[in-house]
Amino acid sequence: MPPFSRGFHRRPPREDVDPSRVPPGQYVVNDFPVLSAGPTPRPKLDEWSFSVQGAVDGAASWTWEELNALPQETFTVDIHCVTKWTKLGTTWTGVSVDTLMDGVATEAEYVSVWADGGYTTNVPLEDLRDGKAWVVHTFDGEPLEPAHGGPARLLVPHLYFWKSAKWVRGLTLTVEDEPGFWENAGYNNYGDPWREQRYWGD
């Protein structure tokens, strides 16, 4: 155990929080903090598209209208930011990555997620499949605000939230793992909050 910090005490535990839902080193917030590295992009929806490309047979692309015409799922998950906040019970609506990958053949095992503003993040493909990830456009029944990644962001709730790229525009399938924006800057390549994989070597 690390050395004690003289005079530091835990606050009374919150009765509305199930501690088994809070990963190590995290604390629960009620608001929805914003973190991003630059100005908030505001793409025009009639010029917006989402694509699945790279090492695939059958690259695919959807306009905003086409994406919204795909089967939609509404679900409630907990999200965990590497900057220590956890938000429980967030409700989203969007399209499962399984739906987007339907009809796309690939032997690639990695995905480079890319977004407006130049952001990229890498995720193993298996972490985006089988109901584990979505492209979402609605938060708590309202259109996703630009500051939170609207018009659409990726949502990969089982990994730290920087993997859930805001302003997402596409998935590029890659044969080799290609570390993204934060992964190149000292943050963990995988980012499992339950193993507290915040930084390189965690």
Binding site: D31, P33, V34, A37, G38, P39
Partner: peptide, 27 residues
């Protein structure tokens, strides 16, 4: 604050890639 300033900078013609932001909330 950061949202307002970054938006204003973009409106003044600053290239988004030159504008670096760090934000903290009240939490």
């Amino acid at each position: 604050f950061v949202e307002a300033v970054a938006d204003a900078l973009v409106s003044l013609g600053h290239a988004a890639e030159n504008v670096h932001t760090e934000r903290f909330g009240p939490t």
